[in-house]
């Protein structure tokens, strides 16, 4: 607890750095499945990965409800969110504007999060997942991504569990309702808006 009170994660220059972090997020979401680097805050926020802390500092405030995955749901992290962002922590994923999961294994089911309403699909949860690796080698998931923001199609590699593809398909089919996901790790963020279509692809041999 001491480490966080003495050196909590925060921006050195909030105006400039949150703008830069937002542009990373905007670019990530408008060019899905292409990881972009993002600025990271100094200091720690308990078990919250620095990329997720950057998203929280940029996007969350008193108007947003935040859900934390079980491994993040400690007094230290809750306190950091309350003090640094002013955000309230909710125990119900469907009530959250932003959901944070420290690792891919901690991800909640996409169907447990809010998809918004047919008239207001923007009232949905944005899921932010940490500990993601985008290396081509040794990753469990290789997919062919297509949709708005992607010129024709592109290959995407990450360490999400294989079950994710089926859940994502369901989420994508609900368009315009649905959950948007930010995958973070290695100081990078990749966007996965609900409009993106993911198809399992073992090898980069045939592209449609």
């Amino acid at each position: 607890m001491n480490s966080i009170t003495s050196n909590p994660a925060r921006w050195e220059n909030p105006v400039r750095q949150s703008q830069q972090a937002f542009r990373s997020l905007l670019q990530a979401l408008s060019r899905p499945c292409m990881p972009v680097s993002m600025p990271l805050p100094e200091g720690g926020a308990g078990s919250l990965p620095p990329e997720l802390a950057a998203i929280a500092l940029t996007m969350c405030d008193q108007d947003t409800a935040v859900w934390l995955s079980p491994s993040l749901d400690t007094e230290e992290v809750r306190r950091w969110f309350r003090f640094q962002c002013g955000a309230s922590v909710t125990s119900s994923p469907a009530m959250a504007d932003f959901a944070f999961a420290a690792r891919p294994e901690d991800m909640p089911l996409l169907s447990d999060l809010s998809r918004g309403e047919p008239e207001y699909p923007d009232r949905s949860t944005t899921l932010c997942v940490g500990g993601v690796s985008f290396d081509r080698e040794g990753n469990s998931l290789s997919v062919l991504a297509s949709g708005p923001g992607i010129s024709t199609s592109l290959m995407f590699y990450c360490n999400l569990p294989e079950e994710f593809l089926g859940r994502w398909e369901e989420n994508h089919q609900a368009f315009p309702q649905g959950v948007d996901v930010f995958l973070c790790g290695q100081s990078m963020v990749a966007g996965l808006p609900r409009s993106t279509c993911l198809k399992a692809q073992k090898e980069e041999t045939s592209c449609m």
């Binding site: 905007l26 923001g149 315009p176 649905g178 609900r194």
Partner: peptide
Amino acid sequence: LLKAVAVP
């Protein structure tokens, strides 16, 4: 804006 980009 992030929502707007996600739902073109």
